[in-house]
Each structure stands twice: as C-alpha cells, then as structure tokens.
Amino acid sequence: MAQLFPKWANKVPKKLLLSVNLLLLAVIFGFWYWGSPKYTQVGYAPSQPIDYSHRLHAGELGIDCQYCHGSVMESANAGIPSTETCMTCHSQIATDSPMLEPLYEAWETGNPVEWVHIHKLPGFAYFNHSAHVNVGVGCATCHGRVDRMEVVMQSEPLSMGWCLDCHNNPEPYLRPVEEVTNMAWEPEEDHFEFARMVISKKNINPPIYCNACHR
C-alpha cells in the first residue's frame, strides 16, 4: 500500500505543539505589553484650542498650580480655570497676541474655551483630588513635571495597577503638604522616616478594597 503521508508529516505534531504554545504565549505577551495603558495612554498630548504653555506659566513665571486649578485642596476635581481666571492677567498682558483669540472670543460670547481632557479615568473609577493632596501626594507624582511641558502630556499610565502600587506602598510618594504643588521637590535623605511619621500621624491607610474606587 502506498504511503498516505510524506515523510515530513512525522514532524508535524511536534511542530504544531510548539507553535501553538508559542502563539499562546505571544498573544498573552502582546496584550500585556501593547494593550496596557503604559503603551496606549502614556504620551497622550493632544493639541489644545489655545497653545497654552505650562512651561511658561508654571515653570518660568512660577505661578502656583492652585492659581488655576483652585479647587484641588477642597474638591474631588482640581478644576479647569474659567475664562475669568485667564483674564485676570490677559486683560492686560499680550492682548494683541493672535494665539489668545479663542480666549477673547470666549470672554465676549460667554462660551467657555473647550479644553481637551487629557487625564481621563473611566466612569466606574472614583478619584478624589483633595483626599490625595491633603495627605501629601504631590501634583508632579501623578502628572509629571508639568512645569517643563510646552504641551501637557500624560506621563503616567493611570491604570489600576499603577494606583495600587501607591496604595499598597505609599511611603515613597508622600511629601509635606505645603510642598504638594512644588514641581521640583526632591525627597530628603531621611524621607522614609518622615513618611512613616506622616503615615502614623495622619493615620494614612490607603484603601485597597474594590468599593474604595468602584462605588
């Protein structure tokens, strides 16, 4: 009887087994790497209706974060500055700049400037700014060195795992509350002693149960 299969068929089962397993591993790795917020979210820097430079305002001019994001210490939302906030200076400064036309238009019509939302959390995740800054989590810890950004860019993944990294181990991310808006703050040498002191003094116990954020 003639052979049903050619000789190379002998090796097919082994090759099949190997390639199926490799494929499976590759799929898992692929989703883990390219599907993660670290890959898909970090670096998101959309262009805004006004080419507002945080580098200029927060960096060179040294305006405090809270001048514009005024509700950060009291409220869940840090707040987007109103047209009036911009106009406190820009009613006097650079009034003839073509870059500021959308601002003056907003001022005249009463329709706010439509800034593009960058640091987005999903609707099912609850986040409160005041709860974090009031125990000493600095702005720069989550938003990066905004004072060096010409265009604001998302610098952290904002994934659940990223949140949990700090909630499980908050020590490295705490600073004195009066330093939270200081972009250039560096931890001192005795930082961990300080952090442990703050944790026990303020009774900081970051929740890691589901209901803390998924309410």
Binding site: I28, W32, S36, P37, K38, P157, S159, M160, G161, W162, L164, D165
Partner: peptide, 8 residues
C-alpha cells in the same frame, strides 16, 4: 491568572 495592568 493572566498578567494585567489592573494587578487583578
């Protein structure tokens, strides 16, 4: 139990 960014 797959590795994921939610640490779930």
């Amino acid at each position: 139990p797959l590795p994921n960014q939610m640490q779930m």
